[in-house]
Amino acid sequence: MGSGRIFISPGVARILTFAAFALVLLVSAAAAYFFNEDMNKAKWQSDAWMNPVITQKEERAMQWVRENTVEREVFVTDIFGGEHLMGETLREGTEGGDWAIVPEVVPRMSDVNEFFKTSDSAKAHEIAKKYGANFALIPDRQLFAGFEWLSPDRSKFSNSDYFEMVYQDGEMQIFEIK
């Protein structure tokens, strides 16, 4: 007592030790629970970004592109199609890539968006030529040209005065622009 220490009997000490041990276990379990919950939330958030968007038919079409066109040939593409095309074949899409110093980039996006949406062959042809494209890459998926996800109107390509289909694998099509 003189030293200022509190005397605890062995029984009480055992109970206190057990309580401390249980508390540590409880806190550790709670920490592990919240850690696991946050980690799973992070995985869930990232999961959506893993989708490659492009299709396997699109990937197979790159073989034809390499064999039948020259490097830096321009294709009408959406953003994902253009970036896939440049990465796999060193060809260029009307869209896709770093837009930091691209002149008039927003009107370009608007035009390419219209190219995919319109059923007017002449209008689509004019847009393609405006951006120096000799081919159009129309994949078997929805397209994103900067404003909205859309299904391309394929009816415009039936006009043989402007377009000729040069590659087909189901709905994956490549058209030459005359």
Binding site: W49, M50, V53, E83, M86, G87, E88, L90, G96, D98
Partner: peptide, 17 residues
């Protein structure tokens, strides 16, 4: 490693080019 192709969101393919 899950998908048949590496992720393309975020302009990943421009670096591949």
């Amino acid at each position: 490693l899950r998908e048949w192709h590496m992720p393309t969101y975020g302009n990943t393919m421009i670096h591949i080019a």
